[in-house]
């Protein structure tokens, strides 16, 4: 770091502190929040939860990437693990980071889907937001014409549906066919993701998406996220009264196929925040169906049963298991025998 950055920091100390003080929370969350001691559910049920990770090395001619995902299943007796992974290279075009995030999401959901199919799961925990995955199409496909999109759906949708059954995100055949035409490829990947979410929701199980860091502001419409407001208000166990979001109120455009459009636009999401243990962090819960407040309490009791330090252990364990570190990437690169320059060798 340059010394001048210290000087700049000192110079701006007062201004930044002032801004920070001014961002004080003015909302009144008391009417939404309920301090409530969450008891652990004593019944027996099967629960699963997972996470995914990716990493990459950017060589000059290509980018090497690796993705993995794990779903842990706990049935009161033992914990089992379902795993999926992929390693491949991509041309060094733009949007690679976003594409890898997308691949990882697909792999993660496919692994969860496999768990739902192979085990008698009562509750499925999902790391992050399902709603976010549905309502935020990658901005970089907006340049594609409707005609191109329709053609793509007509040609590749059957193949994509077939691929859903596989626990990988290997679209290399299609990719070869498209001759690495980047935008159509990204569109197909987005389509694949929507199809997997569709399959998950179609299973009609209790799916609970849990987010540690949400910037959502649907409760207070403030420029400060709802999560921070609740965090500031109470440090006790408890939850917020649920809010219901209709997808059709949020999404005004059409989903790629009528089948997807019908399902997603007919969906209601239940949103609430909760703290599972005094003084621990607030979590955002999101359920892809409508659930009453008493139902929310029941869900929390079940989640609490498998939580440690205020966070579901299955998600925590899966998170630790899947991390692909830079050292792992170097090993993968060595196994593949890839010794290409990255351009950073002289640093």
């Amino acid at each position: 770091m340059l010394d001048s950055l210290y000087e700049r920091t000192l110079y701006k100390k007062e201004t930044i502190n002032k801004k920070f003080r001014n961002s004080k929370i003015k909302s009144r969350p008391a009417s939404f929040w309920k301090d409530w001691q969450i008891n652990e559910d004593g019944s027996e049920f099967t629960i699963c939860g997972g996470d995914g990770s990716f990493n990459k090395i950017e060589f000059r001619r290509f980018m090497l990437y690796a993705i993995d995902a794990e779903c842990l299943i706990y049935d009161n007796d033992e914990m089992r693990s379902l795993q999926s992974c992929e390693v491949d290279i991509l041309p060094p075009y733009g949007y690679n980071r976003e594409r890898l995030e997308n691949y990882m999401g697909i792999l993660e959901m496919k692994t969860n889907l496999k768990a739902l199919e192979e085990y008698d799961i009562d509750i499925m925990l999902f790391d992050g937001s399902i709603l976010g995955n549905i309502i935020m199409p990658p901005h970089f496909i907006r340049g594609l014409t409707k005609r191109t999109k329709d053609e793509m759906i007509e040609v590749y949708l059957p193949a994509l549906k077939e691929k859903i059954e596989e626990s990988s995100s290997d679209l290399s055949t299609i990719r070869k066919d498209l001759k690495e035409d980047i935008e159509p490829m990204i569109y197909l990947e987005y389509l694949e993701k929507l199809l997997v979410i569709y399959r998950l929701i179609e299973k009609k199980r209790e799916i609970v998406a849990i987010s540690k860091r949400s910037t959502s502001n649907s409760y207070f419409r403030s420029n400060i996220p709802d999560m921070a407001i609740f965090e500031d208000f109470s440090n006790k166990e408890g939850y917020s009264k649920p809010k219901y979001l209709e997808v059709s109120d949020i999404v005004k455009w059409k989903f790629p196929t009528s089948e997807l459009d019908r399902l997603f636009k007919g969906m209601t999401f239940t949103i609430f925040y909760a703290r599972l243990e005094d003084f621990k962090n607030i979590l955002k819960f999101e359920l892809p169906y409508r659930l009453s407040e008493s139902g929310v309490a029941e869900i929390l009791e079940k989640v609490k049963k498998i939580s440690t330090d205020g966070y579901p252990y299955l998600l925590k364990r899966a998170h630790n298991d899947v991390i692909i570190r830079d050292g792992d990437m170097e090993r993968i690169s060595r196994i593949l025998g890839l010794f290409e320059r990255t351009g950073r060798e002289m640093l």
């Binding site: 440690t308 330090d309 299955l314």
Partner: peptide, 12 residues
Amino acid sequence: NPATVEKIREIE
């Protein structure tokens, strides 16, 4: 937290 360890042992 010992309780965390207890819970992990219970699950794993």
